[in-house]
Write a protein that binds this DNA or RNA. Sequence first.
DNA 1: AGCACGCCGACT
DNA 2: GTCGGCGTGCTC
Length: 803
Amino acid sequence: MQVASVIVDVAAMQTDRSFDYLIPDKWSGMIAPGMRVIVPFGPRSIQGFVTEVKSRSEVEKLKPLIEPMDLLPVLNAELLSLADWLTETTLCFKISAYQAMLPAAMKAKYEKVFRLIDGKTPSTKEIAELFQNRTEILWEEVAKLGLLTVFRQEVKANRIELVYKVKSKGNKKMIRMIGCALPANQSKEYIEQLPANALKQKLVLEYLVKQTSKFVSAKEAMEASGASSATLKSLIEKGLIVETKQEMYRDPYENREFQKTEPLPLTELQEKAIIPILQSIEQEQHETFLLYGVTGSGKTEIYLQSIQKVLKIGKEAIVLVPEISLTPQMVHRFKGRFGDDVAVLHSGLSIGEKYDEWRKIQRKEVKVVVGARSAIFAPFENLGIIIIDEEHETSYKQEENPRYHARETAIKRAQHYNCPVILGSATPALESFARAQKGVYKLLTLSKRMNDQALPDVEIVDMREELRDGNRSMFSRALFEKLEDRLKKGEQTVLFLNRRGHSSFIMCRDCGYVSGCPHCDISLTYHRYSHQMKCHYCGYEEPVPHACPECNSEHIRYFGTGTQKVEEELGKLLPYAKVVRMDVDTTSKKGAHEKLLRQFEEGKADILLGTQMIAKGLDFPNITLVGVLTADTMLHIPDFRSSEKTFQLLTQVSGRAGRHELQGEVVIQTYTPEHYSIQLAGEQDYDQFYQQEMMIRKMGHYPPFYFLALVTVSHYDVITASSITEKITNYLRSHLSKSAIILGPVASPIPRINDRYRYQCLIKYKREPKLNEGLKTILEHYTKQHKDKHLQVAIDVNPFIMM
DNA sequence: AGCACGCCGACT
DNA sequence: GTCGGCGTGCTC
């Protein structure tokens, strides 16, 4: 009998290995690696993934697996080995890697039910009554009734059984189809024989007879004939029509027209950049290209034409875009060029919609995937190119297990398929640019905007001076003047602000009291529309205080400015200006994002006010002014990448202005105008910024000169948290080479979240072959649960967020 | 993770 | 003397 090695759906240290099961003869030959199966595990049944099919096992007493969940593997050999790599490099459980690669719909759901055993009668009337008109009762219901003990006795006495069910979240959408059951040559006669009052029935049959295909959707047939479902029902009863269900895709872009676009002629620079990419595609040679092109230099057209080449030789393409910029604009460009060959994957889709897009990819019904981070796992089997747009974006790093980076994952996959990776950005991540300098990546440069448009003029305004001159508004005089000017000319403005909501925190002006979260070491954020103070880390809420809880003073001031507050202010200062506000709060509804952008595009608004999400991808000809209200909010967060992030963001936002005929202007308001990342963003000088920042990174022993690994320990007890971190730090000190720099133990930048105290240890290293092994030992040692179940140890290799 | 098995305190 | 508390260890 065959044996299947299975990774079970239990994310824990002790179960992070394969378990062997017998394959019952009836499934023999049908079970393959990469398929999901239901297996018995202890007393329950759970989902698992087959990793290997073999003829014998080391283990003596094997249980047979219950049944397969798939007819075809959901993970191919390449993805299975990619999961091995993910597990190894990010130190996650294998099951977590598998789950990250598949749509959420494939994650199993479990249900426990009590079932009355055939022919048995429960010992009490009460239980018998519960089973009156059903054979199963949910475990939860029994628990709620407080009858678990009684039921347990019944189970022992073999009158009731406890059944563990595995349910798939994946629900294929089915539609009702009907077809004519009349003999083809006599249909007329049959229809005529119907009673005279069966008018609707006749219409339905006539409609069906006219159809070229056997089955049509019931909905269509009803609409066309004006019949109701009752009509169909009686036709089915008479046996005149037959009914089936057909699987169908949910189409998130249904009824949407995409203007077909043709390849544009490339500029000389674009031409030069695309040649090596096309070569790599043709010669099937893996190479990673860093496509470094200023904003508006036409990177997208290079992507499109490279993909075209890939499709022409019968291969497939993955395009990653940051979640936030998965704007309709981007989707339009790809759907416009490649039509139905494109699947789109982003967080705005429902679980079912994502599942459908995934199945289209698996069935090879599409050739191109445009999606956010997790689209890197698209189950293509003949990849010809992987493109990562805005490659510097932090959203390409997953912040929970498996903590993978889409860039490294892309390179890993591309090596397997011998195909190129294109990393595109106007402001590459320092790591990427450094690799390009060293020749690890191949640098392709687009130094000019298309049609030689000039980059926008940038003015940096010192807000301290504004304040000194008595301007206490959030708009500097320069920005306000220009804003008025654009309104007069009918041109559009983009205003950028890094913070949503109203104000960031409130403080008592008399005693300086700031209301903080009782569970976390962080101040509460004021939310205007709910009129609550909220903690962004644990969700704690409390009402806004009318008086200071410390000194009873009523002088409470709102600090920090959010988009809501700016919107209010604009309403006061420029009441005739039409403002569209875009942030998480206004775009959370489905389709809201697109709607707001369309309003702006059609000129129905003068000012687009928003957060991060308006920083990239926008390309509207009438935008001639970009205002950054406070450039330094990001600069002061305790993260060695804060300068880089500030520079990138400012450059991206500035790039929204003057992309077409009209010349653009940018105003950057700041309290630290002398800071190099603001100065150099103003000059749009990436190269200079790169030089400067590299020096700082070198001195601080930070990436790209060193790699990082971060161990975070949290516990309800401060002493435990710090002492365990100390032990871990000491262990690492003794295990790693002299050249590794080990910092800690120190409290995390946010020392307490959700009542858990957090300590960390940071490792900076260049080459440390024993590191992964050491980190694994730490995880194994401290996650043996009975040690201390309140203890949490999290390890992030190459962390992005240091908090 | 979840579940059973097993060993100690407060109840019929 | 039993019910149920949660410490410990296993799941092919």
